[in-house]
């Protein structure tokens, strides 16, 4: 009978271990404290703050597919842009400007596009997949350029008019309303992403990233699993795009550009992939640096970000957060 008892004890320990993997750590409160504090401390920077929050949502969506499932893409702006145009056109052409539902519509458009394109593209790997994602996003951009009647083409989509949030909070010049709105959306997206990566589904993505052959071997429908997370990620990117369209009341082809796909990738890698908070750190650091340095000299900023990227790839491949972890581990190892 001792064996059974041991077994029970083992099970309890195993459950504690699994629960520990997804337990909250006190440091996870930090970004939210910072975000709320920023609202009061930097009231003049809330417009920038809103754009940072949107960028974090977008980078978070990329982390789901890149950091967890290992899908490398150069075209993630396709879904951001689809969401932005979806939300924008809903208002500009159909006159629907209720912000929450319009943003959700953006997420829906992104998700549908993600599902359809993912179904086709995710059968490919490596350089072919890189090229396909890149070409898909640019094709969409050229399509938006050609469909001038609907998208405004090169001149951008004008005539977006968004109603007050919840019927009472007007769009304000300082961006208070949208900062709060974006922060709530980010919180919800983050909670969803956290839930997803800590589910058995999320574990299977890590398995696919780590060893896809073995996942076939345990009966995982790999393609379906990848399409599922790609769709979720695209929907989240679409939400970010929808928020972007609403907060700017203007959408240009730029939302679909290669530069945007590249930037979000850089942000995520700077912060660190596969850890959710990398998106927070990367997007915030990137956009604050850009705001400060590009004012001084755009060339200096561009050169700097290029150099930083090279250095990160060569020496700090795990990004800012990962390197912080390594540093801590080393100092603890040295102390012991």
């Amino acid at each position: 009978m001792t064996e059974l008892l041991d077994n029970g004890g083992g099970s309890a320990a195993a459950r504690r271990f699994m629960a520990g993997r997804e337990a909250w750590h006190w440091a996870e409160a930090l970004p939210w404290v910072v975000a709320v504090a920023a609202f009061f401390v930097f009231p003049d920077y809330l417009a920038l703050g809103t754009q940072i929050l949107i960028a974090i949502i977008f980078a978070l969506s990329l982390d789901l597919i890149l950091g967890y499932a290992g899908i490398i893409t150069l075209g993630h702006a396709a879904y951001f842009g689809a969401g932005a145009y979806g939300t924008g056109m809903l208002s500009a052409h159909l006159g629907w400007g209720e912000p929450i539902s319009a943003m959700l519509f953006g997420g829906f458009v992104g998700g549908v596009l993600g599902f359809v394109s993912g179904w086709v593209l995710l059968r490919y790997h490596g350089l072919t997949l890189l090229m396909l994602t890149l070409a898909t996003a640019i094709m969409l951009k050229e399509g938006a350029n050609a469909a001038e009647e609907w998208t405004g083409g090169f001149d951008g989509l004008v005539g977006i008019s968004i109603w007050p949030l919840l019927g009472s909070f007007e769009y304000d010049l300082w961006g208070k309303t949208y900062y709060c709105f974006a922060l709530v959306v980010l919180l919800l997206c983050f909670l969803a992403a956290r839930r997803i990566v800590h589910s058995a589904f999320g574990r299977s993505l890590v398995g696919i990233k780590g060893n896809v052959g073995r996942m076939h071997g345990v009966g995982t429908p790999v393609h379906g699993r990848l399409v599922a997370v790609y769709t979720l990620s695209a929907a989240m990117a679409g939400l970010a795009g929808g928020l972007f369209a609403e907060s700017n009341a203007y959408v240009t082809l730029d939302v679909l550009s290669f530069a945007r796909s590249g930037t979000v990738l850089i942000m995520l890698v700077l912060g660190g992939t596969g850890r959710l908070y990398g998106a927070f750190v990367g997007a915030a650091v990137y956009m604050i640096l850009e705001d400060e340095l590009a004012k001084l000299s755009p060339e200096f900023w561009e050169f700097g970000i290029g150099l930083l990227l090279v250095i990160v790839v060569l020496f700090f491949r795990r990004g800012l957060l990962g390197s912080l972890d390594d540093l801590r581990a080393r100092s603890m190892g040295g102390g012991a």
């Binding site: 990738l265 850089i266 900023w301 561009e302 050169f303 290029g306 150099l307 990227l309 090279v310 790839v313």
Partner: peptide, 16 residues
């Protein structure tokens, strides 16, 4: 991914 990032970094530096 690493190759792409490194070479994008070089493109930025060259452009600047």
């Amino acid at each position: 991914l690493d190759q792409v990032l490194l070479s994008i970094g070089l493109v930025f530096m060259a452009t600047a």
